[in-house]
């Protein structure tokens, strides 16, 4: 591995450049989060408006086993989606990254264009394919007239298909960013030294593209945990995930403070995990 880049302490010019991002984060991330945090300690009136008091009741409710179970299930779905996205997406990113230069951008766009169709329209197209009398089962019956076909729509399988469909490009793109940087000569060299394709892959290619995989995992796993629309449409809203529960506090139950408390715990847990991972990563990189 290359040595860690020698980092410097920023001087005034760098601070100046950092200002817009810090200002943006403070204004549009910290301030709204602070508002929510205040709300999470309040009570509500009948329209769901916040009444400013101090109460820990909302937090007590968050740790009700119902919500903990839902949270665990959300993490499970997101984890499964991430694993499938890595396995299915890596070869694609590799293929695009190793393609001839004039093809790379075309392939990337080809990858993204399906996502530029409204989520709802795409989902309805999936329903046309997966429903009981849909195209998939039609195709199966065409090949094997005696087959019973699949009853996929409104099942957890359909939810996972929807999740993978929605998040796959977010795995492929960052991995592509790493693969594109790979030095072809390095692979050739490893191969010439007698390493088989598997060996080249596991000890040369994977370590070099690890940052891309890590970034992709972050970009897929994190949004997938809080996702709500796919469970509603593809899963028939039968099994609630944490995203649905938070959404419901605002758009069904009119309980903003509880919604804010759920959100605060959810984001807090995430931020803590991420911060610890960053720390561990830094220690590994620079044990001093």
């Amino acid at each position: 591995m290359k040595s860690a880049p020698d980092r410097r302490t920023p001087r005034w010019r760098a601070w100046l450049l950092l200002t817009p991002m810090i200002a943006w984060l403070v204004l549009f991330v910290v301030a709204p989060t602070a508002i929510l945090l205040v709300y999470s300690f309040c009570e509500r009136d009948e329209v769901g408006r916040v009444v400013f008091t101090f109460s820990l009741e909302n937090y007590r409710r968050v740790f009700d086993p119902i919500y903990l179970r839902i949270f665990a299930r959300s993490v499970g779905y997101a984890g499964l989606t991430t694993v499938i996205c890595i396995l299915a997406g890596y070869p694609v990113a590799y293929c695009i990254g190793r393609a001839r230069e004039e093809w790379r951008h075309r392939l990337l766009l080809l990858l993204m264009v399906p996502c530029w169709t409204s989520f709802l329209i795409r989902t309805y197209a999936w329903i046309t394919i997966l429903k009981e009398e849909g195209l998939l089962n039609g195709l199966i019956r065409l090949v094997a007239p005696t087959a019973t076909g699949f009853d996929l729509m409104y099942t957890p399988t359909a939810v996972v298909i929807g999740l993978v469909y929605a998040y796959l490009p977010f795995m492929i793109l960052p991995i592509y960013g790493s693969v594109e940087k790979l030095d072809g000569a390095l692979i050739e060299a490893a191969h010439d030294l007698g390493a088989g394709p598997l060996r080249v892959f596991s000890s040369v290619i994977i370590p070099l593209t690890l940052p891309g995989i890590a970034a992709g995992t972050l970009l897929v796993f994190v949004p997938a945990v809080g996702m709500f629309a796919i469970t509603d449409l593809m899963g028939g809203a039968r099994v609630p995930l944490i995203g649905n529960v938070i959404q419901n506090q605002f758009l069904v139950a009119r309980d903003w403070p509880f919604g804010a408390a759920l959100g605060a715990v959810f984001m807090g847990l995430f931020a803590l995990t991420y911060w610890i991972l960053l720390r561990l990563g830094a220690r590994e990189e620079d044990p001093a």
Partner: peptide, 12 residues
Amino acid sequence: ADIDRLVTDLKS
């Protein structure tokens, strides 16, 4: 809110 909690509980 109680109704929402009840249904969420039963669904999950």
